[in-house]
Amino acid sequence: MSEAAVLEQGAKASTMRPLVWAAVAIGLLVLCAAPLGISSYWLRVLTTVLMYVIVTQGLNVIVGITGYHAFGNGVFFGIGAYACGTAMVAGLPFVAGIALAIVMSAVCAFILGWPILRLKGHYFAIATVALNLAAVQIIIQIGGITGGAQGLALPLSDWDPKPLYIALYYLMLGGAVASTAIVAILLKRPLGFALRAIRDSERAAAVMGINTTKAKVYAWAISAGLTGFAGGVWAYWITFIEPSSAFDPAVGVKAYIMLIIGGMGSILGPVIGAFVLEIVSTLVWSGFLKAHQLILGLLIVVVCIVAPNGIINAFARLVRSVRRNDGAT
Score class of each variant (00 low, 15 high):
Ala4Thr: 15
Ala4Asn: 12
Leu7Ser: 13
Ser14Lys: 13
Arg17Ile: 12
Val20Thr: 12
Ala22His: 04
Ala22Trp: 07
Ile26His: 10
Cys32Pro: 02
Ala34Glu: 01
Ala34Asn: 03
Gly37Cys: 11
Tyr41Thr: 12
Arg44Leu: 11
Leu50Val: 03
Val55Thr: 03
Thr56Trp: 01
Gly58His: 02
Gly58Ala: 06
Val61Leu: 06
Val63Asn: 12
His69Phe: 12
Phe71Lys: 04
Gly72His: 06
Val75Lys: 07
Ile79Tyr: 05
Gly80Lys: 08
Tyr82Leu: 07
Cys84Pro: 05
Gly85Asp: 05
Thr86Asn: 08
Ala87Asn: 09
Val89Glu: 03
Gly91Tyr: 02
Leu92Cys: 05
Leu92Asn: 05
Pro93Thr: 04
Phe94Cys: 00
Ala96Pro: 14
Ala96Arg: 02
Val103Thr: 13
Cys108Phe: 14
Ile111Ser: 08
Gly113Ala: 08
Tyr123Arg: 10
Ala125Glu: 01
Val129His: 03
Leu131Tyr: 06
Ala134Tyr: 08
Val136Thr: 11
Gln137Asp: 08
Ile142Thr: 12
Gly143Lys: 03
Gly144Val: 15
Thr146Met: 05
Gly151Trp: 14
Gly151Arg: 10
Leu152Glu: 05
Pro155Ser: 11
Leu156Met: 11
Asp158Pro: 10
Asp160Leu: 12
Lys162Phe: 15
Lys162Arg: 15
Ala167Pro: 13
Ala167Lys: 04
Leu173Pro: 03
Gly174His: 04
Gly175Cys: 09
Ala181Gly: 09
Ile182Thr: 15
Ile185Leu: 15
Leu191Glu: 07
Glu202Phe: 09
Gly209Phe: 07
Ile210Cys: 11
Asn211Thr: 04
Ala221Phe: 00
Ile222Asn: 01
Ala224Trp: 00
Ala224Tyr: 03
Thr227Asp: 02
Gly228Gln: 00
Phe229Pro: 04
Gly232Lys: 01
Tyr236Phe: 10
Pro243Ile: 08
Pro243Phe: 02
Ser244Gln: 09
Ala246Cys: 12
Gly252Trp: 00
Gly252Lys: 03
Met258Ser: 06
Gly263Met: 11
Ser266Pro: 09
Ser266Leu: 07
Gly269Arg: 06
Gly269Gln: 06
Gly269Asn: 07
Pro270Phe: 05
Gly273Gln: 03
Ala274Tyr: 01
Val276Glu: 02
Val276Gln: 07
Ser281Trp: 02
Ser281Lys: 12
Thr282Tyr: 15
Leu283Arg: 15
Val284Gly: 10
Val284Ala: 07
Trp285Phe: 14
Leu289Asp: 11
Leu294Lys: 09
Leu294Asn: 09
Leu296Thr: 13
Leu299Glu: 10
Ile300Gly: 01
Ile300Ser: 09
Val301His: 09
Cys304Ala: 12
Cys304Tyr: 01
Ile305Pro: 05
Ala307Val: 04
Pro308Phe: 06
Arg323Gln: 15
Gly327Pro: 11
Ala328Pro: 08
